[in-house]
């Protein structure tokens, strides 16, 4: 292949005047982390609430939760980003629309909102699975102790559900980080956008994408590591999936 490798390119000044190319990738990484973390917190709260709603013995709430899930998970993330960025400000009253367009960092907030709604539907479904996977006796036992419905959920059902779904939540956390690259579509200069900008300015395609690949993998490995620690820390002996026990079965690797 007729390609001129130049790993020194990262130390050269980037033409947008902010510093070296490495520094622009760092700025992108910062946005990626900021948007992922903010959206993750929001998605966890929204997903938890909606997932719980769908399991309630109240038909109206359950249907509302189902409608929310079906609406936000059946539209591609990219389309949702565009809807929040270009369409919503045009259909709300003009004063609000203008405010939405002119808030500083509007692409950041748009990306957070779109990612949070999209991811919350997936988390909601996992919460529902976590709740429904528990034996029915669990709820009955709680109520037999005199707990109200709210108390049974808060003290018995939800804490267990959260522990049960921690492994799939790890994947979801990693997904939100990867999905944050779609925020490029609404003009957020996150890691993928900065990588593309770097390859367009310098034409060093492979160097740019190699480094951003490594950055994504490293961040995701940190997430996996952190979530494993959390799992172990929260584990209830005999209930949660116990990784120590699994290792023992495999012969203690």
């Amino acid at each position: 292949m007729n390609y001129n490798w130049n790993w020194g390119i990262f130390l050269e000044a980037s033409p947008d005047g902010t510093g070296s190319y490495l520094y622009t990738l760092f700025l992108g990484t910062r946005w990626t982390i900021a948007v992922s973390l903010t959206a993750w917190v929001a998605a966890l709260v929204m997903g938890g609430v909606v997932g719980t709603l769908t399991t309630l013995p109240r038909r109206g709430w359950a249907m509302l939760g189902d409608a929310y899930i079906e609406f936000f998970r059946n539209i591609p993330l990219l389309v949702q980003m565009f809807l929040w960025f270009f369409v919503v400000p045009e259909i709300v009253p003009e004063a609000i629309g203008t405010w939405m367009k002119q808030t500083p960092n509007s692409s950041f907030w748009t990306a957070v909102v779109a990612l949070a709604f999209f991811t919350s539907t997936r988390i909601a479904v996992q919460f529902r699975a976590g709740i429904l996977s528990q034996a029915r006796g669990q709820m009955m036992a709680a109520q037999a102790l005199g707990m109200t419905l709210t108390q049974s959920y808060c003290y018995v059902i939800l804490p267990m559900a959260f522990r049960i779904i921690l492994p799939p939540l790890t994947s979801e956390f990693m997904n939100i980080l990867k999905n944050s690259s779609v925020a490029m579509a609404v003009g957020l200069m996150e890691l993928t956008a900065q990588t593309r900008a770097m390859q367009e300015f310098s034409f060093q395609v492979f160097e740019a994408f190699t480094v951003s690949t490594i950055i994504y993998i490293v961040i995701n490995m940190v997430i996996v590591f952190g979530m494993r620690r959390l799992e172990r820390w929260l584990a209830v002996p005999g209930f949660s999936f116990d990784r120590g026990a699994e290792a023992d079965l495999r012969g203690g690797a």
Binding site: P15, D16, G17, G187, M189, R196, A197, Q199, E200, F201
Partner: peptide, 15 residues
């Protein structure tokens, strides 16, 4: 103002 990311044009606007 706006320009397309990665173009020589946005580069110049920044400069």
């Amino acid at each position: 103002i706006v320009s397309t990311s990665g173009t020589t044009n946005v580069k110049q606007a920044n400069e």
